[in-house]
Structure formats: C-alpha cells, structure tokens
Design a binder for these strands. Sequence first.
DNA 1: CCGCATCCCCGATGATACTG
DNA 2: CAGTATCATCGGGGATGCGG
Lengths: 135, 135
Amino acid sequence: MEKTIHGRPYIETKKGPILTPCAPNGVLARLGDKWTILVMSILALDPARALRFSEIKNGIPDISQRMLTLTLRNLERDGLVTRHYFAEVPPRVEYELTPMGKTMLPALEGFTGWIRDNWQAIEQARQRFDRAGRS
Amino acid sequence: MEKTIHGRPYIETKKGPILTPCAPNGVLARLGDKWTILVMSILALDPARALRFSEIKNGIPDISQRMLTLTLRNLERDGLVTRHYFAEVPPRVEYELTPMGKTMLPALEGFTGWIRDNWQAIEQARQRFDRAGRS
DNA sequence: CCGCATCCCCGATGATACTG
DNA sequence: CAGTATCATCGGGGATGCGG
C-alpha cells in the first residue's frame, strides 16, 4: 500500500496522497542550509585532497569562523567529512570527504547542474512576476 | 581562468580556490527552505494533474495555510508552478508544475534518491558521533 | 591557528482572526 | 475554499572576545 516519491513515503487516501513525515526530511533540511552545500563544493574541487580550516574559510566569502566550525561539525557528525587534528604549534586541522561524502557528489552535481542551467530563466520569471504585480 | 564546480564559478589563487558568490546560491536557498521540496514532491506525484489548494494542504501534514500560500506564491514567482483561479462559489484554485518545473524533477530525484539510500547510514553516524562525545 | 562561549538581532515560521 | 493581516515566537547566524 505504501509508495514513495523522491524518497518520501506517502499513503493513498480517498482524499488524495498524504506525505508521511520521515527522516529524509531532516537530512534534506540539513543539506539545504546556508553553508553546507558550499562547504561540500569546496571539498569536492579535489576530493582526494584534505583542506585546512583556513583554506576552506578563505574559499567561501562571507562565512564566519563560527558558522564554518558549526557546519563542519555537523558534516563530521553526519559521516560526510573527516576531521584530522595535528597537535602542533600553531595547531593544524584538515578536513576531507569520507567515502560516503564522495558518493554524494554526483547527486549534488545533478541538482546544482539543473540550477546552473535554469537560474537565469528563474530570474526572468521573477522579474516578470514582480512587474505584473503593480497594476 | 574561471572554472566552475557544481554550477558555481570559482577562481584559482595561490592560496587556493575561492567560490564566487552568485545567483545560484539564492535559488538553492529558496529550494532548500522548509516546505518547497515537499510541495514540489506532491505536485510531482502526477505531473499531468493539477491539484487544488486544499488537496496540497491535506497532502502535507503540519503545513499551515499561511506557509502553503507563501510557498506556492514563491514557486509561481520562480516560474516553477502555475496558478489557475476559478471564480466560482466557493472559489477553486488549482496548481500544476510548469514545463520548467517538470524539468526539475529528475535532478531532484537524483538528490533525494541519494538521501533515500544513505539516510540510515547518516543516522548511524550521528549516533556514533554523539555516543563518542560524552567521554 | 582553530574553536568555543556569549550576546544580540532579524527573518522565517506559526497561531489566530477576518474578508471575498 | 482560498487568501490576507496581525501579532508572537523561535532559532539561525553574525560579532566579539577568550582559551588551548
């Protein structure tokens, strides 16, 4: 009886389908936050290479130290990024994608690729919509 | 000189790559909000069929009337959804995916498909991480 | 160099009540 | 039935300073 769309289970009723709240929603919300995709993109530039905290920070304009720390901590918690701490002076910390993190790249590529191909059309649609607004 | 990763332009410097802020970031932020993907998923169940406001609302547990209205308005503004108003009593309003909206489905499917295949591993990673925390 | 704690602001979201 | 208006709330995220 239970089917799925986009990984989300739903049930058919006489009044139509009803999406069932489930774990994937939470994962999607995490990945869709303000910085996660950008951090993943930076690490994806050369998936074989580990990057220092400061290299990542420099690569993402406007991200604060606090938000980068939080974002990396969440990615580490989710098993998508590994953290390597070197107890030197001054300390050095490197991050790299885990095997699971690397499997995400093609899926991410498909989604961001669509955006790359369509964001201009979206921009135009927005302008048309806004212009039509004040009649 | 300029390359792109995941649709985002970046520049190479001696200190490493730097992502350039650009429009796609805004589009991603919109799609990543709390309800947009869920609304798209409902409309994707049968892309050929238009759904009434109340049908969509019933299909998404816990969404408020206000947030559904706002989400649909944004999708309409972005050119991803069309709104059809029927001046009857009581009024009837139907929504359906635009052609551009439909082109988004495969990309979305790829991304949510990865989540479907990996969210359990992510859950486990989180539990491991949290358990390791309190030492 | 890297990360955490604290304070603070604002926008996203929700609850409720009211119109065409 | 669908949408709007208003008010309350909550958490993301920015700024700053300290600590290892």
